[in-house]
Nucleic acid binder design. Structure first.
Lengths: 107, 107
DNA sequence: TATTATTATCGTAATATTGCAATATTAAAT
DNA sequence: ATTTAATATTGCAATATTACGATAATAATA
């Protein structure tokens, strides 16, 4: 015991939870906010900006990448991370639907 | 090491992450969805519905309660959990703002 | 006040997450 | 091919989460 029993839940429930998990860390919120403020983004900037060690930032970036939110392309000699627009809008809609479909007339 | 360095992030970043953390488990997504479908909600129904042990359900309910999303009131002999409307709309807006304020013209 | 049904807490084991130092890889420029 | 700068991976320690059996607390009813 200790691991989540994902198999007893629906695909939709698991997927929303998985995305929420990526957002469930202030560093990853901060990273997404910071990237969005830049024209491009160099990971080394993030280390200075966020205040975590380079391997830690790299791992957080990887978590964000896993759910398809980041595109990394080389621009000259620097690796530039960008937010994937389509995926972003997809997730925005998923959260919007979740919050909207809940019936609040419970009691 | 091991614990999150919450102090290096803003209150807003930490709060959004904390709420996301509650949504970051399919059982809690399922619980919220199930409660919303009922007129009221008895925890014992949740145990049968979700498929986790009663203490586990109770703990998940507590996590949801901690961020102010649940109101528990006794209706006759049964404890009825309801979603707190005001808090729900508050969180809905918080996520909406997060997704909307991100600038997608990164690269 | 017992009894019964429901919900919460405690204790504990298994697994996951977070973070960083050390090291490896990658890509550009010399 | 070497060097240099940036990013990724590995390995490991500390902490957090998930889950459940056992037990306690709570509230209605007999």
């Amino acid at each position: 015991m200790g691991s989540s029993k994902t198999h007893i839940f629906s695909i939709q429930q698991n997927e929303l939870a998985q995305v929420a998990k990526v957002l469930a860390h202030p560093a990853r919120i901060a990273i997404l906010e910071y990237i969005s403020k830049q024209e491009g983004c160099i990971c080394n900037d993030l280390v200075d900006e966020i205040g975590l060690a380079q391997p830690t930032i790299s791992q957080h970036l990887n978590e964000i990448k896993k759910i398809g939110l980041l595109q990394g392309t080389y621009e000259g000699k620097n690796l530039c991370y960008c937010i994937d627009q389509q995926r972003w809008l997809e997730l925005q809609e998923a959260f919007h639907n979740f919050f909207s479909n809940i019936n609040l007339n419970c009691c």
